[in-house]
């Protein structure tokens, strides 16, 4: 099959959408609601293109290519249509970029900047939209929901339904009052997938008080320390503290998905309660001691127990938060030096 996009011809396959073909050939079509991992949502109407023979523009994300299709992705009338879409969204969007968590990596901001919208379009007869409504309770305490920032793209609804398979979220009410609601909140597993796909600041993370703008962050790729799946994480680090966890959609094994632990369980890293020096119980109380003293003490006791009661009187419990290498060395130590198979770690508890 052959289609023509903006005067250039492309070989295409059955089952591809117009957007797929355009993206594969570096032809830019603006999108807001489109999400690769779920079926086309088609709620925003930004990806409209003109197809010869059709009286109205069609949505590129949900229209499948047909042989001989002639497509135009950019024209003054398309620009005007897309502009109207943005204007409709902006009409009730609060003026709170400076305090919004998402500002700087917000898809809506990118689009407005890209379209270069000039002048006042929002209807301000009802006053300047501000972030007035108090945050609405959400299905999980890890996330806050600001309905006034919401662009109703329904990415969260679809990703919860199709990708996570819980179907917690629905769109409730209509018009100005329309908003996302966790109707089936009992189903929620707090995975935060809805938070990750939100293109604006409507769903914001409610765990860490530490925040940072994108240009202040350094992204470090690592592996989740919790269970044996070994999900790939990207820790967003600012001022030497982890402020957020993001994921790259393309990398196995998790392909952009995380569970509640991986997404929200990063605060222990900067916790004040973490041990930084070895403690030794002296006269019934823990006291900070040097590594040398602590190791000497442990070595003394272990060898005396081993000589008095035998190797199997000792058991070792490692942590799943340690690296593979650390755990390998630990079991080697238990087996080869102590001489016991009593080794386990916390993830089995």
């Amino acid at each position: 099959m052959v289609v023509t996009i903006n005067g250039r011809q492309f070989e295409v396959e059955q089952g591809q959408t117009i957007l797929d073909v355009a993206r594969a050939n570096d032809i830019y079509i603006p999108t807001l609601c489109y999400l690769e991992k779920v079926s086309p949502i088609g709620s925003c109407g930004l990806c409209v293109v003109e197809v010869e023979g059709q009286s109205e523009p069609v949505q590129a994300c949900s229209t499948y290519v047909e042989d001989g299709m002639v497509i135009i992705t950019d024209s003054p009338s398309l620009f005007e249509t897309r502009r109207k879409v943005l204007e409709r969204i902006l009409e009730r969007h609060p003026l709170d970029c400076p305090v919004c968590d998402k500002a700087g990596e917000c898809r809506l901001q990118d689009l407005v900047y890209e379209f270069g919208l000039e002048g006042r379009i929002a209807d301000h007869r009802v006053g300047i939209p501000r972030l007035q409504e108090p945050p609405v309770t959400y299905s999980t305490p890890g996330i806050k929901y600001y309905p006034s920032r919401c662009v109703l793209c329904q990415r969260c609804v679809h990703v919860c339904m199709e990708h996570v398979g819980r179907g917690v979220l629905v769109v409730n009410e209509e018009g100005d009052k329309a908003r996302i609601e966790p109707l089936y909140a009992d189903n929620c597993i707090s995975c935060g997938e809805c938070l990750a796909v939100c293109p604006v600041g409507a769903l914001t993370e409610n765990v860490s008080p530490l925040k940072a703008r994108p240009w202040q962050k350094k992204v470090v790729r690592t592996v989740c320390p919790y269970c044996g799946v070994g999900c790939v994480l990207e820790l967003n680090v600012a001022r030497n503290k982890v402020v957020k966890v993001t994921v790259d959609d393309t990398i196995p094994p998790n392909h952009g998905t995380l569970c509640v632990k991986g997404r929200f369980g990063f605060e222990f890293i900067n916790s004040e309660e973490r041990l930084k020096k070895p403690l030794l119980r002296k006269n019934g109380e823990f006291q900070e001691v040097s590594w040398e003293e602590a190791l000497d003490f442990v070595a003394d006791k272990l060898s005396s127990i081993k000589s008095e009661a035998g190797s199997d009187a000792i058991a070792g419990l490692a942590s799943a938060k340690c690296t593979n290498e650390d755990n390998y060395v630990f079991q080697k130590f238990m087996r080869a030096v102590i001489g016991t198979n009593n080794v386990d770690h916390c993830a089995r508890l």
């Binding site: 902006l90 003026l95 970029c97 500002a103 901001q109 407005v112 900047y113 919208l117 929002a122």
Partner: peptide
């Protein structure tokens, strides 16, 4: 009128979401 590099007027920034976004960007 070059909204990509020219800062919008400050009074617009306080009342208009497009100007605010451009200013932020």
């Amino acid at each position: 009128d070059v909204p990509y590099v020219v800062m919008p007027d400050k009074s617009d920034v306080l009342t208009d979401i497009e100007a605010l976004i451009k200013h932020f960007k």
